[in-house]
């Protein structure tokens, strides 16, 4: 984080010397200066030395792979790397004209959003309830944290089994309730299944952060509200929630990253992207096309699209939502 902080200080300073009159979009995109430290380095040498470890890590884990992906995105290449043919934008054109790719993008959008909101709501409710669980609070927390300790493939397999239409106990129960549950034949069921499994896996992460944030809410404020006659829910909604908004904002981004990139293991073990590609998210498609189908050019083009998307969303989120969150509690 140090490098980012320092970078933003310099940027902030240079920006502040400009006249205040700027285009609306520019202003909207300009970094917020609130909450930043005013200290900065005078000479560039020490600063460069201090940020170099971070930069080296970035170089090897971000810039080099990105460069490799970029160089592959414009070629057709045989998997063994012996023959390559420059094809220009053809990989991208094929992607954007492909119906399956458009479906995958659409699915990813809704899946990520639903997963994000559901996780926050459930984790929020559980964190809120923590305060009100008197007996067995320790056990309560442990149970909620457990899913995080289970490998995605293992939990995915368990979900797949529980909801397997021919042998799964939960599937059998659903069918006996009159719901024709079958994620092999009904695409909606498959999408519901991966969403639930992903939410279940990530609730504990949000729960830890939200519980900590709620604990940090000053007791005095809540007591004051209680004296004024606010019921628990009211106290939560009007006192705690505004104070935990920075955490919620942080989690919103982390959930987004999780949904977009880290649900791979769950999808691979629960549905394998099927039936008929109905649960193939963008990341899963990169894997399928690259590592199973060995269509490296298309796979590289897809990861470029994903990278651009991720950068775009992160910038937008930070710039747009940050302004509505009060960090200076």
């Amino acid at each position: 984080m140090a490098a980012t902080d320092l970078g933003m200080v310099e940027e902030g300073r240079s920006r502040s010397s400009f006249p205040a009159r700027r285009g609306a979009v520019r202003k909207w995109l300009a970094p917020s200066e609130s909450g930043l430290k005013r200290a900065h380095f005078r000479g560039a040498g020490l600063a460069a030395a201090l940020i170099s470890p971070q930069l080296i890590i970035l170089l090897f884990f971000f810039f080099v792979p990105s460069w490799k992906a970029l160089s592959l995105a414009f070629v057709q290449i045989d998997p063994f790397g012996g023959k390559a043919m420059f094809v220009g934008m053809q990989n991208f054109i094929e992607l954007f004209t492909s119906e399956t790719y458009r479906y995958s993008a659409w699915l990813t959008f809704w899946f990520t959003l639903a997963q994000n909101v559901l996780t926050l709501v459930i984790a929020g409710a559980l964190a809120f309830a923590t305060d009100h669980v008197i007996r067995g609070r320790y056990g309560y927390r442990t149970v909620i944290l457990l899913p995080y300790a289970i490998a995605p493939v293992v939990s995915g397999t368990i979900w797949a089994f529980l909801f397997n239409p021919s042998v799964g106990p939960i599937a059998t129960w659903l069918q006996s309730m009159g719901y024709p549950w079958d994620p092999n034949l009904r695409t909606t069921d498959a999408v519901i299944l991966i969403t639930l499994a992903s939410v279940w896996k990530h609730v504990c992460y949000d729960y830890i952060f939200l519980t900590a944030a709620m604990l940090a809410v000053p007791q005095s404020l809540r007591e004051a509200a209680a004296i004024d006659g606010a019921r628990p829910w009211r106290r939560f909604a009007t006192v705690s929630v505004p104070l935990i908004m920075p955490t919620v904002f942080y989690l919103f981004i982390m959930n987004f990253v999780y949904g977009l990139f880290e649900t791979f293991g769950i999808i691979d073990s629960v549905t394998r992207g099927g039936p008929a590609g109905s649960t193939t998210t963008l990341v899963y498609k990169v894997y399928q096309d690259g590592f199973v189908n060995l269509n490296l050019g298309s796979s590289a083009a897809q990861s470029i699209v994903l990278m651009v998307l991720a950068i775009l969303f992160t910038v937008l989120q930070f710039r747009a939502i940050e302004r509505k969150v009060n960090y200076e509690v």
């Binding site: 397999t157 368990i158 979900w159 797949a160 089994f161 529980l162 909801f163 397997n164 239409p165 021919s166 042998v167 799964g168 994620p183 092999n184 034949l185 073990s269 629960v270 549905t271 394998r272």
Partner: peptide, 14 residues
């Protein structure tokens, strides 16, 4: 056969 329940798909987890 699938529609008539003659064929069963195993799916994942099995």
């Amino acid at each position: 056969w699938i529609d008539d329940g003659i064929i069963q798909l195993a799916g994942q987890g099995l």
